[in-house]
Simulated assay, not measured.
Amino acid sequence: MIEELICNSGEKNDIFILFMGERAFSAMTILRQFLYNNVYRAPSVHQEFIKAKKVLIEIYNYFIDNIDFLQAELEKMEMAPWEPSKNHLKRSVCDIIASMTDRYALELYTKLFFPRPRV
């Protein structure tokens, strides 16, 4: 695909135009349709998206309600100091969650919401 893009791109009317060519575009369209039908919109994948959404919403709400805990997590992530502004708190929490890896978010969710066997 990259080779096709390089070979088919060029200057036209003093403007550089990127074009991948009909053959590569057709193949990309077929691949995209396959992925949407068999991967992205597959029922099993959709169920995982629902679970992930629940995890992120619950972490978000916990951070909004527990600023001190949020600050402690930021220190662990080496993102502190952080000055939460009441006007930007929601946006900041979204940015912080977006910076987490999947593994980190799942471990945090487990820590926050799963019962511990021994207290």
Results as ranks from 00 to 15, higher is better:
Glu73Leu: 02
Val45Glu: 15
Phe63Ile: 00
Ile97Arg: 00
Gln33Met: 13
Asn61Cys: 05
Tyr109Leu: 01
Phe19Thr: 03
Leu35Arg: 15
Arg23Met: 06
Asn66Ala: 05
Tyr60Ile: 02
Ile67Val: 05
Leu70Tyr: 05
Glu48His: 00
Phe16Trp: 07
Glu11Trp: 15
Leu74Ala: 07
Gly10His: 00
Pro43Phe: 04
Val45Pro: 06
Pro117Trp: 05
Leu106Asn: 07
Leu108Ile: 11
Ile59Asp: 00
Ala24Phe: 04
Glu83Asp: 09
Pro81Ile: 09
Glu73Ala: 05
Thr101Leu: 05
Asn8Lys: 01
Tyr62Met: 15
Glu78Asp: 12
Arg91Tyr: 04
Arg41Ile: 01
Leu108Trp: 12
Tyr40Thr: 01
Arg116Asn: 13
Asn13Arg: 00
Met28Glu: 13
Leu35Gly: 04
Ile67Leu: 10
Met1Arg: 13
Glu4Cys: 08
Ile17Pro: 01
Val55Ala: 01
Leu108Gly: 09
Ile15Arg: 11
Pro115Asp: 14
Lys53Ser: 10
Asn61Arg: 09
Asn66Asp: 05
Phe114Asp: 10
Ile2Met: 01
Ile97Thr: 04
Ile6Arg: 11
Lys90His: 14
Asn61Ala: 04
Ser99Lys: 06
Ser85Gly: 11
Asn8Ala: 06
Glu75Lys: 07
Phe69Val: 05
Pro117Ser: 07
Met79Ala: 14
Arg41Val: 03
Leu35Val: 06
Trp82Thr: 09
Phe63Tyr: 06
Leu112Asn: 08
Gly10Gln: 00
Cys7Asp: 04
Glu83Gln: 09
Met28Ala: 08
Ser9Pro: 02
Glu4Lys: 07
Asp102Ala: 08
Asp102Val: 08
Lys53His: 07
Glu83Ile: 11
Leu35Tyr: 04
Glu83Trp: 06
Arg91Trp: 09
Gln33Thr: 12
Tyr104Phe: 04
Asn13Thr: 15
Ile57Gln: 11
Glu58Pro: 06
Phe19Trp: 03
Phe63Met: 08
Gln33Trp: 14
Ile64Ala: 12
Ser92Thr: 08
Arg118Thr: 07
Pro115Asn: 15
Phe114Ser: 12
Ser99Ile: 12
Pro81Thr: 13
Pro117Gly: 07
Arg41Trp: 02
Asp65Leu: 07
His88Ser: 13
Ile67Tyr: 05
Asn87Ala: 14
Leu106Pro: 05
Phe16Glu: 01
Arg118Asn: 15
Arg103Gln: 11
Ser99Asp: 15
Leu89Pro: 02
Leu35Lys: 13
Ala42Met: 03
Ile64His: 15
Val119Ser: 11
Glu75Asn: 13
Asn8Asp: 06
Phe63Trp: 15
Glu48Asn: 10
Gln71Lys: 14
Leu74Gly: 12
Asn87Leu: 10
Ser9Trp: 03
Phe69Met: 01
Lys51Gln: 03
Lys76Tyr: 09
Leu108Thr: 08
Ala27Ile: 01
Met28Cys: 11
